[in-house]
Amino acid sequence: MLEINNLHASVVDIENSEILKGINLKVGRGEVHAIMGPNGSGKSTLANVLMGRPDYLVTDGDVTLEGESILELRPDQRAHLGMFLAFQYPAEIPGVRPWQFLKAALDSKAESRGEDKMSVRNFSKLFDEKVEAVGINPNLVKRSLNEGFSGGEKKRNEMLQLEVLQPALAILDETDSGLDVDALRIVAEGVNSMRSPERSFIVVTHYQRLLNYITPDVVHILVKGKIVKTGGPELALEVEKDGYQEYLEAAGANA
C-alpha cells in the first residue's frame, strides 16, 4: 500500500540539513511495521515527511500510496486518502473542542470524496462510543483540544482521533513516549483493536516496550537517516538487549 523509494529529506531553508538519506520501505496492506532507532536517527522526521509537514523538504526519491505519488499533496489531501499521523507532541489548541474539530475533519473528508456529511446526531453517537472505548474522561473532551491535558491524556486523545477517523494507514510517532504502563496498554489496545487486513500501521518508537503490546510484522532499524536492518519482531528484542551502539558504529564507519 505504501512504498518509499530512496527518500531524501532536509529541513526547509537550512543548508546541509539532510536528515533522511535514502529510505526504502514497503508496507503492505494490513501489516504493522515498527521503525526503531536512536535519538536523532530521523524516525520522527520520516513520520512527519510522510504526512507532509511543511518544515521538511523532500530532495529526492518518492513516496507512493496505492501506486500514486503523494509528495505533491497537502497534509489534508493525504488525510483524505486515509493517512493519519498520531503526534509525539500533539498541539494544544485553546478554544477548539475535540468534538468540533473531529466533525470538521470528517466533514472535510466526506466533502473531498463527494460523500454526504455525517449528521450531527450520528456523529455524536459515534464520538461518544469512541470516547468510551478509548477510556478518555468524557469531561476532558468537552474542554479545549489538548489544553491542560497530561501527556497520557494527549496520547489517548490521539487514539480517539484514530478511532473516529478510521484511517487506512496510521503512523504513530513515538506515541509511547511519556506514557506510564497503564496508558501504554490503552494505546496498544486501541491499535490492536483496529488492526485489520485492510489497515496498515507504521509504529515509530525508541523503545521496545510498546512492541510488547503491539506485535509488529516487520521491524526496521533506522540509524542516521537510513534503514540499516530489517527483520521480524525478534529484532526489537535484540535492540532492547544490545542497544543501538553496534548500528551507530557501523553507520559511523560507513559515513
Binding site: 509537514r53 511543511p54 518544515d55 489534508d76 489548541i93 473531529l102 475533519a105 470528517l106 472535510s108
Partner: peptide
C-alpha cells in the same frame, strides 16, 4: 504553523 499542520493532518483543509 505546528497547530495548523496538526489540524491539516486530520484532513481539515488550510
Amino acid at each position: 504553523k505546528d497547530t495548523l499542520f496538526y489540524l491539516q493532518s486530520r484532513g481539515v483543509d488550510e
